[in-house]
């Protein structure tokens, strides 16, 4: 398998403090990679760099062989990278359906005139957007469909908000999906369920996934590879077992043997 994303020597600093220094990273097509590390290790900054919210000081990010540095966030989404946010950021006053429909913006093309004249092409596209949105939402079982479709996002339960965020990212039809702490705040039952879903995101939808996660159980269950960040530096990478036995990781992150940690 060839790498879908390749990151060279990425460095970014805020006010003289290196948030990430000389990070090298790659993701292969169809892989699920977890990025772990203690708080403040630069994980979310890493996602912000990929999605164009932050510009690096040096280094390069190649997606499918082409540099994506300097692209605006919407252009990054256009070329096929979608993300979720750590502190769930939905469009609260839009309905569940609209939240997912709006995410297909960059995959659709109808302009104002189509809407005003109600052209055939416009109505066809609207129908497709809707069908696709429902298809994406039905991935989560019965939780987000039916009467939920027309509910504003702010009435959803916390777990459902997380699910809707993933649905929204899926709807942008990405090749690479960046999940920022997808199970944070969920109860064990929900975590297990979502872990299965993450596996299915790859097997059924063909997404390559990079995931930031604190829940070691989830990390162990789904990741092909684990990358450990600490103070902006990669201190280890490899399979879950390799990483969890790495003394440096245990010292920096786990603090005590991994088998006791979870």
């Amino acid at each position: 398998m060839s790498p879908i994303m390749h990151i060279h020597d990425l460095t970014v600093s805020f006010g003289g403090l290196n948030a990430l220094s000389d990070l090298n990273f790659h993701v292969d097509e169809g892989e699920i990679v977890s990025v772990i590390g203690p708080n403040g290790a630069g994980k979310t900054t890493f996602f912000n760099l990929i999605t164009g919210l932050v510009e690096p000081n040096s280094g390069d990010i190649l997606f499918e062989g082409e540099s994506i540095l300097g692209l605006d966030p919407y252009q990054v989404t256009e070329i096929g990278i979608a993300r979720t946010f750590q502190n769930v950021r939905l469009f609260p006053n839009m309905t569940v359906l609209e939240n997912v429909m709006v995410a297909q913006h960059c995959r659709t093309h109808q302009h104002a005139f189509g809407a005003l004249l109600q052209t055939k092409a416009f109505r066809k596209e609207e129908r497709e957007i809707r069908e696709r949105a429902e298809e994406v939402l039905s991935f989560f079982g019965t939780r987000l469909i039916g009467y939920r479709l027309d509910q504003p996002a702010f009435v959803l339960s916390y777990a459902n908000r997380r699910r809707l965020e993933i649905a929204r990212a899926m709807a942008t039809q990405p090749r690479l999906l960046l999940l920022d702490e997808p199970v944070a705040g969920m109860n064990p039952k929900e975590s297990v369920e979502l872990t299965n879903l993450i596996g299915r995101l790859r097997s059924e939808w063909g997404f390559t996934i990079v995931m930031i996660e604190h829940d070691m159980g989830v990390v162990r269950d789904v990741s092909d590879r684990v990358v450990v960040l600490d103070h902006g530096v990669t201190i280890a990478q490899g399979s879950y077992e390799e990483v969890s036995n790495d003394p440096q990781v245990i010292e920096a992150y786990l603090g005590r043997p991994a088998q006791d940690a979870s």
């Binding site: 060279h8 090298n24 040096s58 280094g59 994506i68 540095l69 300097g70 692209l71």
Partner: peptide
Amino acid sequence: MTAVGVRSTRRV
């Protein structure tokens, strides 16, 4: 690994 500088591909 070859060092790659920051290239700007931002479409104007």
